[in-house]
Structure formats: C-alpha cells, structure tokens
Design a protein around this nucleic acid. Structure first.
Lengths: 192, 192
DNA sequence: AAGGCCACTTTACCTATGTCAAGAAATGCT
DNA sequence: AGCATTTCTTGACATAGGTAAAGTGGCCTT
C-alpha cells in the first residue's frame, strides 16, 4: 500500500522498478497527530514528505498575525517547502497537519544522493517542479479572474477532501476571504 | 556587454568560466519590436529567452477575452514558460514584448544537452526554478494580504521599470484590478 | 451536570473596488 | 498636418467582501 504511494508520486517515463525501490528505501514512515508541525517558520527545511493519509497545510503569518493558509496537500501529494529545502534558507512558511496523518519523510541529503545518481529522479524532479510552478500560477490567475464564490465552488469540485476535512477558517484564508464571508457564501449556495 | 548578461543570469557557486562560455555559445541574439510575440497561446514552447534590453510580459486571456498580464520580465531576467517548455504542452500563456527589446534565445534541445552534460547548469536550473516558485507564491500571498494600492506602491518601489514602461491597463491587470481603479489609485497617491 | 472553549453563523454597517459612460490627452497613420 | 485610434482620467453609481459584535451549538473537562 505504501508501494502504490511511491508509484503514484514518483511516476515518470524514465522511472523503473529498480530505481523506485532504491528511492522508497530512503523514505521513513512518520505518524502525525492533528496539528503537528512538519516545519516551522524560521527553521530551514531538511526534508520533504509524501502524504499517505490525512491532510496537510502550509501557512504563513501575515503582518497582523493572521494565519494565511497557502497550500493544502492531500493524499498522494508531496509537502515540500522548495525554496527553503533547495536553497537552504529559513522558511517563511509553516507546514502542519490538519488531521491525523501518515507521511513518508525523505531527508535532503538522501534526495541529493539520488538526484546525482539517477537520471530518472532528476527528470522527475524537474517535471514535478514545473508542475508546481504551473499550479501556483494558475492559482494566482484564479484569484484575479474568479469571484470568491466561484473559487469556493471550484475547490468543492476539484478537491473535496479539503472542504470536508479542513476548518472553515483555514479554507477561507486559502480562498483569500474572511471567515464570515465564507460562511455567507455557504448560506447563499444553499438558498439559491 | 552580453557577457555580463550571461554572468548575471547564470550565476551559481558551481558555475565556472569554461561552462559559461559553452552556455553562452548556444544562445542567439534576437531583436524585438514592441508587441512582438515570443510565444503564442496554444503553441508549445521550444526555447527560453534572456532579456538584455527592454521589457517583456506574459499574459493569458480570461473567459471574457480580457488580457491578464501574469508576469513582467525585466532586464537581466529570464522569460521561460516552464510548464510548456519542460512538459512539451501547449502553452496557455502568451509572451510578448512590451517595448522594443533585445533578447538571447536558447533552444530546448541545446539546453537539454547542457543539462545532461554539466552539473553546474543542473544545479543552477534547480535553484532558478525554486526561486521562481518562491516568487510566484509570494505574489499569491500579497494578492491576499495587501490592498490594491499597497501592491501598486510595492511595484513602484521594487520594480520601477515596469511602472515606467508598461501601459496602465497591463499594470492594472497584473495587480488584479480594473484599469479605472488604478487610475483612481494614482490620483489619490498624488493628492494625499 | 456545569462551565468553558471553539467553530461556525448571523446581522448591521462600511469600504474598496467594479462597471459604465463620457471626456481629455496622447499616439500613430496617411 | 490632420484624423483616427488608443490610452488615460473622471464621475456616478453598484456590489462583493470586510469588520465587529452577538448568538448558537457542539464538545471537552472536571
């Protein structure tokens, strides 16, 4: 069952079972309780995590001390604060479990070893990063072109786990609106 | 003068003059007139561009046919539609010169050759991508946490060339507001 | 069972930004 | 130079979403 996790996440045309086995052997299973932190603001990231079970979020604190959720990571996705991990800079983001969760950790040094010894993971890595960049850009564009209620509808449609598992306040800040506004949008969706 | 362009852009701890010379030799100088396209929506990108002179923008068409400027690329920066170039997918973005410009083009195949033969450019590439990801995330966060006039002030402060060289409508869509709103913000900034 | 806390909702009011339409200024074209 | 087109500004009005404060209900703790 963890095997299919690795297969799903590390899928790439150049990937083969031998490489995959080596990759998997460098991951370690970690059990998380709700609200546990995987990375705290100000610390430098030294690992990333594959999510087997549960929901993870990234958040920052804005200048009024409000928590802004910037990403949700669902099952079969990767929680990786790229700019801290690859540039060895203190993170401005926090990574925290929203629910109880099971994740697989791989340390930077082990990844770095793989990256230098396997073409498959290098190519996979570049593709993963470009996919992340694409998603982040899409999200920016949607913040501009769609209304808050449209954004909420899209979230329900495309990532229902988030709407089911995360508290309203986190979803609201992810959508870029106040929690009372999300509450109002929910109400209008029911009555109309 | 083009040499310092390559030095600035391809700077990385592992980079050395020999590598840099090989890299530079695979770029080709291209002269652009205002409004020329480097990539059109629906086409698959097969190159990226270093900007020596002038201003370049990325834009998408939203569902009402409005152009939304998603990025401005200034001098000594790179114009690269990553997800089209590296995943060979049709681009949803357009890349167009805002002013007359001089850029240096490198084709995907040549880059790919470098990427496989030089550790320096591989590491540089990963760092560049993670930098891009960071910037894009920062921009999303600012769209949520800052008001339109704050965003405009930040743009004036951090990237004045854009404010000087791009037309108001493009700047407004980049800031995520209507052009009339940006005009009003400008007025308020003068009188207050 | 009682108190306390948290997540969510609701209401009233406020403000930033959008929309539309008109005019002024700048730029480009022949 | 002169006309056309685009760019920018302005004003009146509309609306999505913000803020603050109070209310409801659930759940945990003792």
């Amino acid at each position: 069952m963890a095997d299919t996790l690795f297969q799903k996440i590390y899928s790439h045309p150049l990937m083969n079972p031998e490489d995959l086995e080596i990759i998997a052997s460098l991951h370690q299973r970690v059990i998380l309780s709700k609200n546990d932190f995987l990375l705290r603001e100000g610390k430098t990231s030294n690992a990333y995590y594959l999510v087997e079970k549960g929901l993870i979020r990234f958040f920052v604190n804005d200048f009024n001390g409000q928590e802004i959720t910037t990403q949700f990571i669902c099952e079969n996705e990767i929680a990786n604060e790229v700019s801290s991990l690859f540039q060895h800079l203190p993170s401005i983001q926090n990574i925290q479990s929203v629910t109880d969760a099971v994740v697989w950790k791989i340390e930077f040094n082990d990844f770095q070893y793989l990256y230098h010894s396997m073409e498959s993971i290098r190519e996979w890595g570049r593709e993963w990063m470009s996919g992340q960049l694409f998603q982040t850009q899409q999200r920016s564009i949607e913040m501009i072109t769609h209304s808050a209620s449209m954004r909420y509808l899209q979230l329900i449609e495309h990532r229902p786990q988030i709407v089911q598992q995360a508290p309203l306040k986190q979803i609201a800040s992810y959508l870029g609106i106040a929690d009372t506004s999300l509450s109002r949008i929910r109400k209008e969706m029911i009555t109309n």
